[in-house]
Structures are given as C-alpha cells and as structure tokens.
Design a protein around this nucleic acid. Structure first.
Lengths: 124, 124
DNA sequence: ATTGATCTACGAATAATTTCGTAGCAAACA
DNA sequence: TGTTTGCTACGAAATTATTCGTAGATCAAT
C-alpha cells in the first residue's frame, strides 16, 4: 500500500514497459544506477508477497506485472505527502510548485484549462 | 537536508510555536500521538547534530530553534517527491491534486491568480 | 543536607529497508 | 554426458530510523 522508493522505481519500469522479467527490470534500473541482479530479484519477490506485483511462472523465468495502477498509487502517495510535508494543505503544495516554475507553458495551459473546468463545477 | 517524517513533525512544532524546549515540543507532539519524552529529546539531539536545529543552552534546559526555514524545506521535499513519485513531472502532480478536489474554491482562486501572473511572465 | 523533580547524555533494542552472497535447479550446449 | 549459463529462493549483513531505559547532574524545597 505504501511502496518504498526502491519499490517505486520498479513499479515505474513495469508501468512504462509492461510485464517484464527480473532480467528486463534489472537492465532498465541499471541504466540509472548501480544495482545487483539479486537485489532487484529480492525486491520484486517482496513486492509480490506484499501484493504490489503479480507474476506468471514461466518455465525458465517469471514474468511480473504491476498489481497496482499508477494513478491509485500516486493518489495515495500524494495524500500521504500532503499530510506529512504540508500538514494537509494541498493548495500550499500547488502554490509551492507553481511558484518554482516547475512547469512548462504548455503544462501551465493544461492546468489552466483544468482549473476553468473546476471553477465551472464550483460556481454555484 | 532530508528530514524524516518524525523530524518533520518536530520542525512543524518549532515553525508554528517558535523556539521551544524539549518539554514544550513533547507536549505538542503528545496531543497527536504517543511518544516518550526521551524519544523527543533524542530526535532533537540528532537534529541538532545534523544542523536542522540550533539551540541555546540555558541553565536548566535547552531552547531549540528550527535552523531551516519551512519554505526551503518544503521546496526540497517537493523536488524529491516529484522526482521519485512523478518521475520529474511536476505538472502531473498538480493535475493529480486538482483533479482530486483537494482545494477549496478560495484556494483555487488564489491558484488561478498565480497562474495569471506566471502566464504574463511567459507570454511572448 | 537529604529528597524529589526535571533535565541532558548516552547506549542500545527494535524495526524497516536495501543490499548481496550462496546454494540449488534446469536448460542449453559442446 | 558433463559443463556452463541463467534463473529462483533464501539467509543474512549493512544501513537507517525510531524508540526508550538508565545514569548522572542540577535545582528547589523540605
């Protein structure tokens, strides 16, 4: 339910590349950092036990699939983060990000559109 | 530089209430959860060693002060969080939050104003 | 001065996370 | 067939975070 940072890395590979073997996940992770093969294996076994991944036991190797969706996971993480880092104030978090110019103009436009829609919903 | 969850709790107390003794911080924390006095003490000692807190050694007890600002800390946390949970896409994070109706209308208006300003900066 | 309350410092147990080595199995191949 | 290769399972070391008990100092009040 609350993936750790390492677990998130693995989930991201599976969300991006789809069902993969440990070998494939390890290759992907290796591109961004040093990590042993059995480390990746162990992590994925633990995630399987926790229910974060499902797997199909092929003859030669196992094929793992993310058992949680990216959206659900991110929603949980955001909730937790807003709580611990911003004491529950989501808007402060948004302001903090926007104030930091962390979004491109295209992204800002997207956000503006979303806000327009939300405003419509809210205006009595 | 990367406060843990427990450390954030303590920082929040100090940001909110200003310089405080261990006793005062412990009293504040006790209201929201079970925590021993020496646990709070130890945490604050560690944070002092890490440079997260400064302190003044009074005769009877020590008075601690947050040595990092709330803004700086939150900016660091957001950067880290966007990286690990959203693979660097801050706008996805913003959209995720706004889509969840985590902000009141007043907050949305505030955000809209901020966006207008940003847009002015970016246009042409 | 002895007692009691309150404080700091410190060591260490516990827990969670990350890491990897080794063993053993099965397929591929020379 | 026997050797190499690549996989899983498992145990356990290393690291980090959290927790609290105990000891020793100091102050206040009897």
């Amino acid at each position: 339910m609350k993936p750790t940072d390492s677990e998130l890395e693995i989930l991201h590979v599976l969300w991006t590349n789809g069902p993969s073997t440990v070998r494939q996940v390890h290759d992907a992770l290796s591109q961004s950092r040093d990590i042993g093969y059995t480390t990746a294996l162990k992590l994925m076994q633990i995630m399987y036990e926790k229910g974060l991944l499902s797997r199909e036991e092929d003859a030669r190797s196992h094929t793992y699939t993310a058992a949680v969706s990216e959206e659900d996971t991110q929603r949980n993480l955001v909730d937790r983060f807003v709580e611990t880092a911003f004491r529950g104030s989501a808007s402060k978090l948004v302001m903090q990000i926007l104030g930091q110019h962390k979004a491109s103009r295209e992204e800002l436009d997207e956000i503006k559109n979303l806000l327009r829609d939300l405003n419509r919903d809210l205006s009595d």
